[in-house]
Structures are given as C-alpha cells and as structure tokens.
C-alpha cells in the first residue's frame, strides 16, 4: 500500500506543482475540473442514462401537474406523492454509478485534503508534536523518549507525558523554510516524521499512523508506522489551511463541492451526460 500511495502522491505532487506558489484557489479549481472531467464519463457509462432522463422527466411532469391542476387538491397531492416516488427512483438510478465514481473521488479528495486541509508552518510559528506509544516502558532517554530536530526546527519544551506516559507532547518552533525530518527514538527504534516549513502549497501530512489497509488508504501522506515501531501515531498540529474566494474564507471542501458542480453543469452538454 505504501508503494501505491507513493505513486499516487507523486502523481498529485506533479499535478499541484504548477500551483504551489500561486493563490491556492487556482489549484482547487484545477483539481475540481479534473474531478469533473474524470467523473462525468465514468458516470455516463456506468449509469442508465435513459432511465435517469425518463425519471427526471416524470418528476418535472408531476411538478407541472401541480400547476396545471392546481384547483384539484386530490390531483395536487397525488402529484406531490409521485414527485417523491420518482425522486426515490432517481436516487436508485444514481446508486450504481456512484459506486463506480466513489473510489476515484475519495482518492482525489484525500489527496486534495493533504494539500488544503492544513498549511505548512511559517518561520517563527510553533506547533505541538504528539506521540502515542504502545508501551510507555519501551523508551530511551530516561523514560521520556528522545525527539531530535534538524537545523531549521527547534524543540522549545521538554517532553510532557500524560496518561501514564502513553502520550508525550513537545512544542517545536519553525526557524526557516524547509522540508525536515523530526526523529523520535525509543530504545531500539527510530521513527521519522516530515515537517514542512514555508509558504508554498504542498502535501502536508499531520500524522503518521500504524499500518493497516484502511489507515494507509485514508492517511497516505507518509509511509505508515511499522507494526513493531512501538508507537500508535506521531502527529504534528499544523495550522488549518484557508482558501479565500472574493475575500471570503471558505473551507476547501465546500469550494471543491461548488466548483465541481459548476464545472459539472458546464460540461454536462459537451459530455452528453444526464444526471
């Protein structure tokens, strides 16, 4: 899975690289457009387009029925019942294509989330580093474990152990731009965690977790922790990323949703898709 993640990360790194130094909205537009371009054909060829068209037509017909026979309450209520019925049928027709588009879209969203959910630390900013251990006794450095930072990062606080030593906290400070490896060592293992300092749009992985298919799929930013690492996760509390549209700060996923819908509407006709 780590290899697959590596390949997928590299593809998306390449895709986002032209947008790394410009306003993040452009990258989001590009990935929304890409999503639409990939999804519409998948949707088209995995759905029953004729049935979708027919069902939508019926819904519209019953909507017109309400207007045309507005003085007959029985017909109006029956039309509303039929609208709901065909709405359910419409959703049923959506299920199969959604099964097919779900997997690629989830991958795209996770990869986009890696770049937009958080932002890199800026020089001078601090962040909390957290490690959760399997076994608090298995530590080097006088029972607290050793966290070492390369030049460009500074560990500002001694380790703070809570929950019987299972969780350990530090505060680090970013000193200059760079892509760093923060190392945490137990008695016999050393685990690295990538820390990014700078202004550019880049892949941010706030945490590495112990392996497993689901964790590897959902947190693909860095290779998973090995089973014998003695740790459950290694986390850095990055600041949340922001995307602004016309001065309004909007969560990236909301914008992604809106943009992919807008592109979807624009591309429905050229792709000859009914949704």
């Amino acid at each position: 899975m780590n290899t697959i993640n590596y390949v997928i990360n590299s593809i998306f790194d390449l895709f986002f690289s032209p947008f790394s130094s410009i306003d993040p909205i452009y990258g989001l537009c590009a990935v929304s457009f890409l999503t639409t371009v990939i999804m519409l054909p998948i949707f088209k060829y995995t759905s029953n387009q004729e049935a979708i068209r027919r069902t939508k037509s019926r819904i519209m017909g019953h909507l017109l029925e309400v207007r045309l026979f507005k003085d007959d309450i029985r017909t109006v209520l029956s039309a509303q019942k039929n609208m709901l019925k065909y709405n359910m049928i419409y959703l049923k027709h959506m299920m199969k294509p959604l099964m097919f588009v779900m997997l690629p879209v989830v991958v795209i969203i996770i990869q986009t989330g890696l770049r937009y959910e958080y932002r890199p630390l800026h020089p001078g900013e601090t962040a909390i580093v957290k490690v959760k251990l399997d076994n608090p006794g298995n530590l080097a450095g006088g029972g607290s474990g050793v966290l070492t930072a390369p030049e460009g990062l500074k560990i500002e606080t001694p380790p703070l152990r809570v929950n019987g030593g299972e969780e350990i906290y530090w505060r680090i400070r970013a000193e200059k731009d760079g892509d760093y490896d923060l190392k945490f060592r137990t008695i016999d293992k050393e685990v690295s965690k990538r820390v990014v300092v700078g202004e550019k749009l880049t892949r941010i992985s706030p945490e590495v977790l112990k392996g497993g298919l689901v964790n590897s799929f959902l947190y693909p930013g860095e290779p998973s922790l090995s089973g014998d690492s003695g740790m459950e996760y290694f986390e850095i509390a990055y600041p949340y990323g922001t995307v602004a549209l016309f001065g309004w700060k909007i969560h990236w996923l909301v914008l992604f949703f809106i943009l992919s819908l807008v592109f979807g509407f624009l591309l429905l006709k050229p792709f000859r898709v009914s949704v």
Binding site: T36, L98, V101, I109, G264, V275
Partner: peptide, 18 residues
Amino acid sequence: QAYIGPGAGFAFISSFFI
C-alpha cells in the same frame, strides 16, 4: 469527506430540491 463528486452532488442537490 463524505462528498463523492459532481454526480453525487447533482443527485443530492436535485433530490433535495425536489
């Protein structure tokens, strides 16, 4: 993260609208 693309978006929006 439970959004699954424009198809689902349309389905959700139109169904909700109806």
